[in-house]
């Protein structure tokens, strides 16, 4: 499907399941798993079981919205033990280049193979607004560093890695609806140039505008250099749809989705909250299925990234409804395979 550069010695850059699915030309599905604000491993295991089989890999968020949660790497290991392949998210907000590299070495040694490089939400959104932020690197520079660790066998400072180098399948994020709109494909190009292998986009509800973004991406030839996974998220309620339309920076939710979610609750007794919630959720999943199908029609879209935070059970019906179930069988990454050394 895509004309990506030749892989490294073992045939794959990282050997992750996600990489293999994409390289085989399958339309990929990634999910998302939000770690808890406590140290309970059962929560991760339970969520991992809900996602297992419904997606090729699942992102494990890194202190999302700047709220302290179980670490992405720690939760990722728990998910891996359940058989779910994680995509470790790493933000530039909380760690400098030393801490990031040491965590990357540790994550690889523990068998993790996908890494999504992010800037991170500002700490003022979260539960420690008086914290000092780091931003030693930005997301583009983080991608560059992870690619250097893998492809140049070198630390960010230039020192060679003596021994096994961490070989991650490198992810980047893109928000097609952030401003300036015209600049977004070019910024994506910078991430590709830095070494990104795959891209997951922000939640997309305005498909028309996303198609315009993809047209620009194709003109730049980026879809042939990087796998683009379009972000899809099921709406839970009309309230959530309105909130995302009005309050979340960088999101574009057209009014007709708010109207559809509102209409889903019509004719149901306002007191019967359970029935209303079920109706809203059914409509949310229906909309998500339609969105996945529309994304699939856009040239250059290599998969979907389904974000159903705190609603992990929604992923499977969406994948099934979109005709993407069962997920293809590929051999998953082996534990810490030694890479060929010179």
């Amino acid at each position: 499907m895509t004309d990506l550069p030749a892989a490294s010695t073992n045939g794959f850059k990282s050997g992750s399941r996600l990489e293999k699915v994409l390289r085989a030309g399958h339309f990929a599905v990634t999910g998302e798993l939000g770690p808890p604000q406590n140290a309970d491993p059962e929560i991760i295991r339970k969520k991992a079981r809900l996602l297992l089989g419904a997606c090729d890999a699942a992102n494990i968020t890194d202190n999302q919205t700047a709220i302290v949660r179980m670490s992405s790497i720690g939760a990722g290991i728990l998910a891996l033990q359940e058989g779910l392949e994680p995509v470790i998210q790493m933000t530039c907000r909380d760690r400098n280049r030393l801490a990031m590299q040491s965590d990357i070495l540790g994550a690889y040694a523990l068998g993790l193979r996908n890494l999504l490089c992010l800037t991170g939400d500002h700490q003022s959104f979260g539960n420690h607004p008086t914290a000092k932020n780091v931003h030693d690197l930005d997301s583009v520079q983080l991608i560059q560093m992870v690619a250097g660790l893998r492809d140049k066998h070198a630390f960010q400072c230039g020192d060679a890695i003596k021994g096994i180098e961490p070989r991650f399948f490198i992810g980047a994020a893109a928000n097609p609806f952030g401003d300036p709109f015209e600049w977004r494909p070019i910024r994506l190009g910078k991430k590709v140039k830095a070494g990104a292998d795959f891209v997951q986009t922000q939640l997309i509800y305005n498909v028309e505008r996303f198609a315009q973004f993809m047209e620009r991406v194709r003109k730049l030839g980026l879809h042939k250099q990087v796998y683009i996974l379009a972000g899809v998220g099921p709406l839970k309620s009309p309230g959530m749809a309105k909130y995302m339309r009005d309050e979340v920076p960088g999101l574009d939710v057209p009014n007709h989705f708010v109207d559809r979610m509102t209409a889903a609750g019509e004719g149901i007794d306002k007191e019967d909250k359970k029935a209303r919630n079920e109706a809203f959720r059914r409509e949310g999943i229906k909309i998500a299925i339609e969105l996945v199908q529309q994304m699939r029609q856009i040239e250059g879209v290599a998969g979907v990234h389904i974000m159903a935070i705190e609603w992990e059970e929604a992923v499977r019906p969406i994948v099934e409804g979109a005709g993407l179930f069962p997920r293809p069988e590929v051999t998953a990454a082996r534990m810490a395979e030694p890479a060929a050394q010179g």
Binding site: H122, S139, G178, D179, P249, G250
Partner: peptide, 25 residues
């Protein structure tokens, strides 16, 4: 707000930083 050298991040909207309406991106 994030000292980005390869910005803007995804939180830039309508010329405003994600941290608040008084802060231009």
């Amino acid at each position: 707000a994030k000292q980005l050298l390869n910005g803007p991040c995804g939180g830039s909207q309508g010329g405003v930083c994600e941290i608040g309406h008084e802060t231009p991106c």
